[in-house]
Design a protein around this nucleic acid. Sequence first.
DNA 1: GAAATCACCTAGCGACGCGAGGGTTCGCCA
DNA 2: TGGCGAACCCTCGCGTCGCTAGGTGATTTC
Lengths: 112, 112
Amino acid sequence: MGRKPQKNDSLPGSLDMLILRTLSLRDLHGYGIVQFIQQSSDNELLVEEGSLYPALQRLELNGWIDGAWGVTSNNRRARIYKITTTGRKQLAVESRKYAKLTLAIARVMGAE
Amino acid sequence: MGRKPQKNDSLPGSLDMLILRTLSLRDLHGYGIVQFIQQSSDNELLVEEGSLYPALQRLELNGWIDGAWGVTSNNRRARIYKITTTGRKQLAVESRKYAKLTLAIARVMGAE
DNA sequence: GAAATCACCTAGCGACGCGAGGGTTCGCCA
DNA sequence: TGGCGAACCCTCGCGTCGCTAGGTGATTTC
């Protein structure tokens, strides 16, 4: 059997970025976001539903995404989310911040 | 004036790794750990004392570091910490995990 | 001798992700 | 046809973590 996907426990804060990134590519419902992240991470990232839905509410509250009831390609009721203009800006901000942080950490991990 | 160092708020979990990494290079006291991380990260990472000391207790409880009262080169009383054998193993584990996670995140951030 | 620096510690708070639970609707197939 | 599993949504309570804000004391510097 394959490797077990990791929980995102170890990098809080990055979940918002991952969701925004996903929605920047296409409108999607919650369940689909989970699948996209899992697949595009090569089955290494697993987003629990107990993390996802609160995160979506958070993001919507901040005005970074917009949700509306719709129907999936499977003919199922679902809340379809799309990223807003502010959301795209936020994604850019978070990406930059994430890059700086990981670079800084890499420096420490490689320092003598 | 220069850039303000970032808080580590955005990457919880990585603090333990940074401390272990620092102590894997040399025995050090808390205050010195903060300075080392700040300097070796090019002044981008700032560890608050309110984060550091609880973290040190955590690590010691887990048996990953050992603390003992001593004296710094400045002739000041301080708790000198050193990494244990188990701590080095833990550092290796966390480093690998961190690398995998950031790689997975990078995949998602670069996916289409 | 006052102020700044070095050095340690704690309590309480807010944020986040998770586990566990509960719910509906659709499609499949025995 | 009726049962079951998958797709889909949601919430509550918990543990962990870093931060803010506060406090302590010793040593150097002016």
